[in-house]
Amino acid sequence: MRTLERVNPHHRFSKKNMIEISNLSKSYGRHKAVDQISFEVTRGEIVGFLGPNGAGKSTTLKMLTGFLPPTSGAARIAGKDIFRESLEVRKKIGYMPENVPLYIDMRVKEYLRFRGGLHGLSGGRLRKRMGEVMETCGLTQVRRKMIKTLSKGYRQRVGLADALIHEPDLLILDEPTNGLDPNQIRAIRRLIKNLGEKHTILISTHILSEVEMTCNKVVIIDEGKIKAADTPENLVNSMRRAGRVTVELQAPKPEVEESISQIEEVTRVVGESLLDGWNRFTVFAAPKTDTRLKLGRLVAQKNWSLRSLSRQIGTLEEVFIELTRKD
């Protein structure tokens, strides 16, 4: 049964928020594709929506664009309810669906004219916008070509130009670099980064480097649930592995382990003997701490020979795996 939240007409939505999702769910029969997710996207942010295949990314985006109705919960885009004010919401969104479906029998220019028309553009303004988006997306040279003759990279650009034509407040891109070669991925990524200066962008992807390079916020979803929503830096710093430090010393293992364990933030020390007579110690510490300074002082004080001291910097990939791993 649908249990949509009642929208209080007097409730003032934050002008700052472009997307507000509260307890949004979608079930296909018994399968819960999206399970009570809530998050917000502030105006001007580029948000990466991450998750393994089948995590519920596309379903969430389809709900936001009004293509699928939510089973329960509510979401607002620029203060408009996605279910009740679907048409208004759709005017504010530029959406590029997964795999970029296009009318392949149309020419690029013809297609953009058609899509621009649907978004209410006409006459000189439509012509101007077509010129601008073709320029932005690098389509000017292929504007007279049939879409079916274009390569995947170009089709992807046509999809992006389509999403941009009406200067939407919010761009929703579902796996925009899926199936592209590294050069094309780079070009699209650069394009998205430039677009981020004017638009709020929500990108779904499972390519993590993409998110690290373009997004200023990350939402990680798995099995229909939000696992994390923060800036990439915060996520990386709050990782379990983030505080880990490796030291290579020439000193007796038991003594070193004993001494390092005394340091306040350290939770565990594991030593191993290397083949060249040195010992390597892995120091586990609480997240968001840096024990390097204290370790340095300790080494100096004890007069141990030291050849390396490094703190592991987590990557988003590690965060992602830590949060979504099944074992």
């Binding site: 389809k62 664009t65 048409l87 759709r90 669906p97 479906p101 296009l102 899509r115």
Partner: peptide, 10 residues
């Protein structure tokens, strides 16, 4: 799949 683009336009 063009139906998705069509019906998510206003």
């Amino acid at each position: 799949g063009t139906i998705e683009g069509l019906l998510t336009a206003p």
